[in-house]
Design a protein around this nucleic acid. Structure first.
Lengths: 213, 213, 213, 213
DNA sequence: CATGAATGAGAATTCATTCAT
DNA sequence: CATGAATGAATTCTCATTCAT
């Protein structure tokens, strides 16, 4: 068994266990046992249980940000609304391909800890910067209405993350299988509808409706 | 110190600690120490750490469902759209008044465990039933467009829960203070806009837009 | 509920639980709960769990010794062999009427503790004195052969106690129901055969047989 | 300190403490402290206190049964009565060499528990089978009289076990030192006398005596 | 007298990490 | 490099008893 094989087996086992039982709810013995690997390897390769989580979270957001950055760099050439739509689709696909990891990361981010503080300043601040810049560009170009940008970001992130954070709720209560390939397509349509509702063309009507009651 | 004082002090400490460090990340010693009570009281009053969590989660959803049920019972007299809007406002306020507990409950629900399984079958299934019935009534009455109801429920729940699940992200990245009283009002406006976008009047336009790209 | 009722309920519960789970394996809460009595009563009436056991063991042997003493006092009027037989029958009946208590007492006596040390010096020494005196009288009168008296006592006690010490073995392995009334009669016959084998008439033959191999 | 040294030290300490204070009356701390090993080793090597007891009881009866089985296999070549006598001697010696363990095992067997239930179905049922078969063979061959075989088994087991179950009674009340080497020989003589009393030659006389009173 | 909340000591077990082999 | 035994701290929970009400 090569070094990389061992590392990967540890990572796979950790993702599975952290996802279903939580970080603090999982012991290194369980991980080692599930990975069929010596316990000492975990401390050796990842500097302990904490390092293992850090590795997982960081590598998740590393890739995540790359996707956004790549699209972001196309902003000067392409249509703003289209690019934002494409980012949404890319992130949906990324989450779909990394379903367990997504659930794990999004959950751990709701805790108060040093690691999470770091993640927020390192990755989430960047993510916010990109989304904010794109939306503000859209507003300046007359696409999006002049809402409160942070609230748009909240909504976008909420809609993106929730299905992957609660897959058991999705399947057992709503009977929607998030792991099926077509879920991404269906759900993407919904997000498009939401995004379109942000388009300036709807603004007057929405305001009229809101004041109507 | 009376029995109820002791119980309440334990509950308060548990809510705080479970919320910030997670259930498995919190020890009963910490809870007892923070509540300034004897450790044995936790097992004595709540039959162990697990019972404490169960108590918190159950009482949270108990109240939560009561709010929905009360409004739901008015369905035959009032306007469907208005009632759904009122439910949203009520839930927002409930979450706001129980900010820590909400974060804790919504996070723990993302884990795989027996308790969570029970919560889902006991409370979340009911919640889904009420929301589904209301939305379907709205569709039948011509208010809401004929979308896929479960997807509407996902979106509603996502938008409702997320800000309370990630308050540190809200404050430290987006600089929105979810604990301020005015946040509820501002955020309620956003949810109204989202809800209005479900109204049938928008359907043709949205479909046109969707097919445009 | 009168004082005596409460005490009796505690005793009954304690006998049952000590018998099946052992003294150290039983908690006072269990006893109080089974007896449907307030926990504090146990300390109050019996000065704690230890006092409860002491009460049970003492009262068991108190009665036990009375039976022997009563028969012993008839020694000057009656036939020695008959009286010993009658003692055996009395003890068998006493054990049968106090099956659970017998099992409990005989088991606890196999532990090293201050209580047991006291029981041995208080009751078992007396028991031994009576048995020894009777047997020696039987030998002097030419009934019993001149064996080693302590060994006879061991055998007698072994045969008497064992069935009541291992009732589950009796029923589940040997399929003998020690709690059925007829068991006492059947088993008494066996003990009579054993006792008769101690009669001097057999001595020469037994020695011959023993040397034969 | 090697693995086996550590395990053996734990076993020795456990035998001593379980024997004198009982299983539930002994704490793992005491065992670890007496064995001079880390507390965690007990769970590590024996999967907890329960596993430790199970190990002791099982290994005791494992050896115990081997002794019987070895003699039992000689049944077709040798004299039945001689073989049964030899089994008795072997068991006496085995108990003598494992005095503490015998006391512990025979006492714990008087409790109601899952472990004991298993021991009875696994080992004691086999023991009974061998003894029963031998005795019945002896009856068929005309050696032993036609008594109720289970009752013979009770008596044999009673006489064998009791001295080792109550060594303090033996020494402090009867002043017999069961740990002295010669005790085995003396006591074996007694058991031979008892066994001989089962021989058919005595039957008529015993019946005559029994009916005489 | 009766109650049951309160207590602090002690129960068994599991934990992540280290380190000699 | 790989191993798994060893560690001691920390985990949750139960214990018997006490005492204010």
């Amino acid at each position: 068994m090569t070094k990389n094989e061992t590392k990967q087996k540890i990572l796979d086992a950790a993702i599975y266990l952290f996802t279903s039982k939580g970080f603090t709810g999982t012991s290194v013995r369980e991980i080692a046992s599930r990975a069929n690997v010596n316990i000492a390897h975990i401390s050796y390769y990842f500097k302990g249980k904490g390092g293992l989580l850090e590795h997982l979270v960081s590598s998740y957001y590393e890739e995540y940000l790359k996707l956004i950055e790549k699209k972001y760099s196309q902003l000067k050439y392409g249509n703003t609304h289209v690019i934002l739509s494409e980012i949404i689709l890319e992130l949906l696909n990324y989450q779909h391909e990394n379903r367990q990891l997504s659930r794990l990361v999004y959950r751990e981010v709701t805790l108060d800890s040093v690691l999470i503080r770091e993640v927020m300043t390192t990755y989430l601040t960047k993510e916010k910067y990109y989304l904010k810049t794109i939306i503000e560009k859209g507003i300046a170009e007359g696409y999006y209405r002049k809402g409160f940008v942070p609230h748009m970001i909240i909504q976008l992130r909420s809609l993106l993350q929730m299905p992957y954070l609660q897959p058991q709720y999705m399947s057992e209560v709503l009977h929607i299988q998030t792991h099926e390939a077509y879920f991404v397509h269906q759900y993407y349509k919904e997000l498009k509808i939401w995004l379109n509702s942000m388009l300036v063309v709807n603004q007057f009507r929405d305001e009229k409706l809101a004041s109507a009651r």
